[in-house]
Every structure is written in C-alpha cells, then in structure tokens.
C-alpha cells in the first residue's frame, strides 16, 4: 500500500506539473505559434482571467460559469487589443514584444490602482483523495483532465474545421490565402482573441490555487515561454504537449527527491539541452519521427 501510494503520488505530481505548464502555455501557444507575436502581456491576460473569475464568483455565479465568463471577457479584450494595437505589428515581432510589454505594465499597475492590492480568492472546488500516506487534490485531477480536453479541442479546431484550415493557410502564406479569398484580417483577430481567451481561461482555472493580485501574471510567464519554445513551431499543439510532458518528466523526480530548488534548475537545464538537441523544438522532432515511420512503414 505504501509503495502503491508513492507511485500514485509521483504520477499525480507529474500530471500536475505537466498540466500547470500546459495551462500556462495555452494562450501563448496560439498567439506565438500561429501568429509569431511574442505576447509579453500573456501573464496579465491570465491575471485578467483570474480577476474576472473572482469578481463573477463574488457576484454569485457557480465556478464553472465563472471560467466560461473569463474566457469570453478576456477573449473580447484580446480582440480589442488586436484591432487597436497588435494589428499594426504583424511581421514586426520584436516591436510587438515591446508594445505588449507596455500593455502588461499598463494592465498590472492599472489593476492595482482600480482594484487595490488583492481580490478575495476563490475556494478550491473539490476535496482531497487519500491514497496511502498521500492525498491528492481533486481539483488538480480535474485540471489535468481539462487541459487534455482543451488540447484535443484545439487540435480538432485547427485540423477539422474551416476556420482551422483558413487559419493554417494564413499562417503559412498570408498573401496566398488572401488571394484565395480568406479574410486574413479576421483570422488574425480571431486567433489573437482565441489566444487571449485561452489565457483568461487558464487564469480562471488556476485562480483558486493562487493569490489574486495585480502582479500575479508574472509567475506564469517564464514557464509558459519555456514550454512553447521547447515545443517549437512545427506543430505548436503537439509541441506544447510534448514539451510539457518532457519537462515534467525531468522535473518531477528531481523535485520530489531532491527538493524544489533543484527541480526548478533541472527544468531550466532540460529546456536548454532539449533545444540544443532539437533546435526546432520537440514538435519538429516528433514530425520527423512520424515521417520516418510513415516512410519505412
């Protein structure tokens, strides 16, 4: 029983680590991967998601509804940003980086001035499960399931729908897509809005596990970028899944047996090494591997 509990606990830790990385990265993947915009306001979009969730929770809405509201609200805010600001920076990734940094300063300090230093937290839904000497949080189990579901939904959206087709066409060659009658401006707006909405969605989901403060977004930025970069751009969704799994595989045992500090160091080192070995990210390596299999098979 003791051994069984240990195994379950380690698997659970692995799942939470991977789900955390994936949730942090979700919105960023869509924006960075599809539009090549380094969105430094990503953390602040997540913060807005958490704020929306907390405010609507206080207004008496049930938590799942709050999460949906956050998705919609932050998605709308993203669309507004795209129209007003980001639109002017396509093809100039690095200027976009500075602009989004400016936006992030505005959002976080503005939030501090409007809402004060804290909002009340949301109680974590679900209790805990006892497994031997260990106990697992039901909510994190739900988060793991939700992050898998979102990835599946995204894959479906981009591979099976007309929007997905148009979006992929626009990302590959905007001029050609336009020539074929795709409204690329609309696709950009929807993609950015989707990315922002997903950031808000993740922010709302992570809100019960965090203190809701104006600068809370900063904690998600570094893990998000590392996950996306390690994943690579060949196929962003597969890449992000691959990299969050790979990074958690390194982090979980090190963190559990050697402590949180070495766990973090292992994560960062693993990111460096993976990129050295697979310069185009995990996704490109996955793609090559599946190609090779298809050829030999």
């Amino acid at each position: 029983m003791e051994e069984f509990g240990l195994v379950i606990s380690v698997v659970y830790q692995f799942g939470t680590n991977a789900a955390f990385l994936l949730l942090c990265a979700l919105g960023l993947i869509v924006i960075l991967g599809m539009m090549n915009i380094i969105n430094l306001a990503h953390g602040e979009l997540m913060m807005m998601g958490a704020y929306t969730a907390s405010l609507s929770y206080q207004a008496g809405l049930p938590f799942p509804v709050c999460v949906a509201v956050s998705f919609l609200v932050v998605g709308f805010v993203g669309a507004v940003f795209e129209r007003l600001v980001v639109r002017r920076f396509y093809g100039r990734e690095l200027s976009a980086l500075v602009v989004t940094w400016g936006i992030s300063l505005l959002l976080s300090q503005g939030t501090l001035m409007v809402f004060g230093p804290f909002l009340p937290s949301i109680p974590i839904p679900g209790g805990s499960l006892d497994v031997g000497a260990y106990s697992l949080s039901v909510y994190w189990l739900i988060l793991i399931a939700v992050s898998i579901a979102v990835v599946v939904a995204l894959a479906w959206l981009y591979n099976r729908t007309t929007f997905g087709l148009h979006a992929r066409a626009t990302m590959q060659d905007a001029a050609m897509a336009r020539a074929l009658g795709v409204n690329t401006g609309r696709i950009y707006m929807l993609t950015f809005s989707l990315g922002a909405g997903l950031a808000g969605f993740s922010g709302a989901l992570l809100a019960p596990t965090a203190s809701i403060m104006p600068f809370m977004g900063q904690q998600f930025v570094a893990p998000a970028f590392i996950t996306v970069v390690v994943g690579g751009a060949a196929n962003v969704i597969a890449g992000a899944v691959g990299s969050s799994v790979l990074l958690s595989l390194v982090r979980t045992p090190v963190g559990f047996y050697l402590g949180a500090f070495l766990g973090l160091v292992a994560l960062l080192l693993a990111a460096l090494i993976i990129i050295r070995l697979m310069p185009n990210g995990v996704s490109a390596a996955l793609l090559r591997w599946s190609d090779r299999r298809a050829q030999s098979g």
Binding site: V85, R88, V99, Q109
Partner: peptide, 20 residues
C-alpha cells in the same frame, strides 16, 4: 506617485504605435 509604471507602459505603447 503610483502612476510611474502606468506612464512608462503607456509611453511604450504610444511610441511603438506612432514611431514603429
């Protein structure tokens, strides 16, 4: 005052919008 970060953030956005 508390506006320092807001002003710097706004400045960045405005500069990049009008002087890309």
């Amino acid at each position: 005052n508390q506006y320092a970060l807001v002003i710097i953030g706004g400045l960045l956005v405005v500069v990049m919008l009008f002087f890309p």
